[in-house]
Design a protein around this nucleic acid. Sequence first.
DNA 1: TCTTAAGCGAGACGGTACGTCCCGTCTTTGA
DNA 2: TCAAAGACGGGACGTACCGTCTCGCTTAAGA
Lengths: 216, 216, 216, 216
Amino acid sequence: MAASKPTHAPAPAADKPHPDVSRRSQRSRRAIYDAALALVAEVGYPRTTIEGIAARAGVGKQTIYRWWSSKADVLLEAFLDLGDRAVQAAGEEGVGIPDTGDLAADLKSVLRATVDELRDPEFEAPYRALAAEGVVNEQLGRAFLTELLEPSLQLFVDRLRSAQDAGHLRADLDPRIALELFVSPLAQRWLQRTAPISHEYTDTLVDYALHGLAPR
Amino acid sequence: MAASKPTHAPAPAADKPHPDVSRRSQRSRRAIYDAALALVAEVGYPRTTIEGIAARAGVGKQTIYRWWSSKADVLLEAFLDLGDRAVQAAGEEGVGIPDTGDLAADLKSVLRATVDELRDPEFEAPYRALAAEGVVNEQLGRAFLTELLEPSLQLFVDRLRSAQDAGHLRADLDPRIALELFVSPLAQRWLQRTAPISHEYTDTLVDYALHGLAPR
Amino acid sequence: MAASKPTHAPAPAADKPHPDVSRRSQRSRRAIYDAALALVAEVGYPRTTIEGIAARAGVGKQTIYRWWSSKADVLLEAFLDLGDRAVQAAGEEGVGIPDTGDLAADLKSVLRATVDELRDPEFEAPYRALAAEGVVNEQLGRAFLTELLEPSLQLFVDRLRSAQDAGHLRADLDPRIALELFVSPLAQRWLQRTAPISHEYTDTLVDYALHGLAPR
Amino acid sequence: MAASKPTHAPAPAADKPHPDVSRRSQRSRRAIYDAALALVAEVGYPRTTIEGIAARAGVGKQTIYRWWSSKADVLLEAFLDLGDRAVQAAGEEGVGIPDTGDLAADLKSVLRATVDELRDPEFEAPYRALAAEGVVNEQLGRAFLTELLEPSLQLFVDRLRSAQDAGHLRADLDPRIALELFVSPLAQRWLQRTAPISHEYTDTLVDYALHGLAPR
DNA sequence: TCTTAAGCGAGACGGTACGTCCCGTCTTTGA
DNA sequence: TCAAAGACGGGACGTACCGTCTCGCTTAAGA
């Protein structure tokens, strides 16, 4: 569910007693990212192993254990890096939610883009793996949330607040809850495969959410 | 997301070349269910092993491999069985969604019950584990969906249709989509821990969904 | 080392509390013998299993466990039965050691026949397996000895005694030891593969043994 | 049948694609040898398992599989090492066959020592196990032969040749065959338990072999 | 310029669990 | 009532990875 992919610093948080970061081999880091993403795409997350990543990256296992605490951690960073690179490649465009004054249209547009992204096979495998791991592993789940989900959700919060200011939304709404009415259904359909997703579907979601299920 | 737990046949589909089902030891089966649920609750899903289940159940490993194809498979069946037993213990009451004529009240009531259930630590560990596995393992995900999720969702579909017939919902609504407006947000908050869940929260969801986000 | 193969009763010794022997299925017994010999020849003794024998013989495992105490036991009986059948097929001829009055010639002739037999691939696999098992498993070793080895050795004892009576051997000889001078070397070469065996070789053994290693 | 135990290089032939030998843990190797010999002595060869050896040695199973191809292989090396250590402990003495000029006395002396050795319970269990395995497993049999048997037999060949040069043996004898007349009978009695072994027995063998069975 | 110490590749190590193969026992069903 | 069939509790197999731990070998920084 990424409406944007904000750039991440190479070493986002040095809360652990890491070794000397300045001597770190950037070459190995890149190779590890690439190997991790490639393996997850090729053989799936459960059959992706630290040993496999190390071998594919041409790297010693210790180099992975030195900088990451788990397979999930490697993949999360690799995926964030992938996003960063995608954003930089895309330039300024496409980040954030448009604000044309027509809330319904803006939401539909962003959700359509999200649908397209969720269908991109390059993203699917690692994204699913991370989401699944986060469901069961609270620590990874928190990181997944703050680094991947929150920034995107915040964009919706901002857009909804702007709509509220313009009087296009009920003034008493909690935007954090409001956004879930169209974002969560899409997320669940995709994650749990409860039903297929499409542009039509997200358009419908926006309509239902904005105007309610009850007759007027 | 279980508003009810319909009884399951012991072996719903014999599509695999199973050994002679009539000779199966029910004693071992029960012991395996119990061991699996206990271990997942005690040490978590990833550290629950087939070997551990077998040892705890006092059963040979082969007896597990003979009847199930994976750890997730065992847990799914054990969990379904748990649900079946809970339903039988509860008797007739509590299954299904009430239909008092007040749709909002009925939905709030069911969602409040769901919140309570999701917080029940006995359910949480295996449910989370299965959901996570289903995200990444399509086969298990399908089973999770059809055996656990669908029956509950169908109850919402039925209730929404009844409301439509009574003129309490827009006539053009697709109930399968409509229900997602209040069910999916709860599911996502719980699964991905995007925010805490509570009775007030689900009440709010129902209000937002029924009356829409836009001002009237 | 079999100069002859005396006929064995179908159930040589009922020293164990066997079930009712009279109701025993001879059909299954034959099938088990055949399966055991075939498997030992095809996949070797260590990879021959009770389950494999039962499956190949079209017999329940319990039918084997009912009548035999171990894999080695099955094979020993099967091999003895094979010998019996060979003897019966051969009729009267070839059993025992000839006594032409020329001891050296008689011994050479029997040893040449033994060399030929040891080279028969049908005999080699089970014979080796039984010999090996007997080295390590004293109980089986005793049975192997009394049922297979002793009868043959006794023939040599008899022939040597006859030679002693005729004055062709030193009168003070212990025939049980004397026979080992030509029999054991052949046995060891074959069992331990210390060197190839041939008719020339056994002829030489007889010469050395009869006339001694020291110059005269 | 070991008249001597020549020292063996730790890794005589690197014909297999072994891992890095220089990094090998000598501590683990010793522990594995000790565990293997102890287990074979305590519970017998068939009930000695790789897992048991690993557990007793405080070693991972993989460390055994990394360096040896089978249980028999481990035991052979452990036994050779045991011999090496025994030789080194014994110093110069006791290795080889004496040459006092009296061939009969020298042979009797060596065979008496061999009898004593064969009765040493520390040697018996592994030696028997290896011999049995070698009967059935040609590859192990070859190794058993070249590493354990041959060196000892060669000492007899040398002594017999020396006796030939001195005119104490027939000049036309093949020493490889000649030695079998007294060595093989002892081997067979011990391996196949055809009869008990003793000093008198081996003395008799030497007499019979040197002077022949026929009257002079 | 030459130590010196870190990161690095490599991979052996003690372990745990895997999924499979048999063991020997037990139970059910059919002849 | 024996035999076929085969499920069962159990134990070992040989493999795959785990995370830790040396080993040299670059390779930059400070003496």
